[in-house]
């Protein structure tokens, strides 16, 4: 008879459990279907040299990062110094993808904050962004020597993400065979 009264309590605890887990989940973190797949093709010019063309195929053989940013993006500003610090470590080059931005604004932004990028690839219409599944700038992709996307950070890269996730991953990828 007493067990009967425990049933509502048990149900309550199960609901609390689900809600507690749900609270900790971030719906903005959508797992990218591109992880483990080849980097989508693009052929874009760069911000400072319109004649230069960059494709992911050209970068084959080295570990590189693609950092999607824009001058209109507030959290890109916050992320900027973390990205710069990563570049200073000299582990891997970071290519910037200037997403749906005006060239003038982007140059002004980089002049003010400094330009850590190996090259700034320009995607004014956001087509490449769509191919790469970008939906919240800033986003950062890690691409291995074979041209496979290995990780994606949605939102600004924090010091914590840099130290615990990106740096160990890049170190590991650099040891892999190209």
């Amino acid at each position: 008879m007493k067990a009967r009264y425990l049933v509502p309590l048990a149900i309550f605890l199960v609901i609390v459990g689900f809600l507690a887990v749900g609270l900790k989940m971030d719906p903005k973190r959508v797992p990218s279907p591109l992880i483990g797949k080849p980097a989508p093709h693009f052929e874009l010019s760069t911000l400072y040299d319109p004649a230069e063309r960059i494709t992911p195929e050209k970068l084959r053989g080295k570990v590189w990062l693609l950092n999607v940013f824009a001058s209109w993006c507030v959290s890109c500003r916050a992320e900027h110094q973390v990205v710069s610090r990563f570049v200073q470590m000299g582990l891997a080059p970071v290519y910037g993808l200037n997403y749906k931005d005006e060239a003038r604004d982007a140059k002004e932004w980089l002049r003010e904050l400094g330009n850590p990028y190996e090259a700034v690839i320009v995607d004014p219409e956001g087509d490449t962004g769509i191919d790469w599944g970008v939906y919240g700038v800033p986003e950062t992709f890690v691409i291995d020597k074979k041209g496979i996307i290995r990780d994606k950070v949605i939102g600004p890269v924090t010091e914590e993400i840099l130290e615990n996730r990106l740096v160990p991953l890049v170190r590991k990828l650099k040891e892999e065979q190209g």
């Binding site: 959508v30 797992p31 990218s32 279907p33 591109l34 769509i130 191919d131 790469w132 599944g133 939906y135």
Partner: peptide, 8 residues
Amino acid sequence: MVNRYGDF
């Protein structure tokens, strides 16, 4: 769409 953004 799914290739880019997943089942979500």
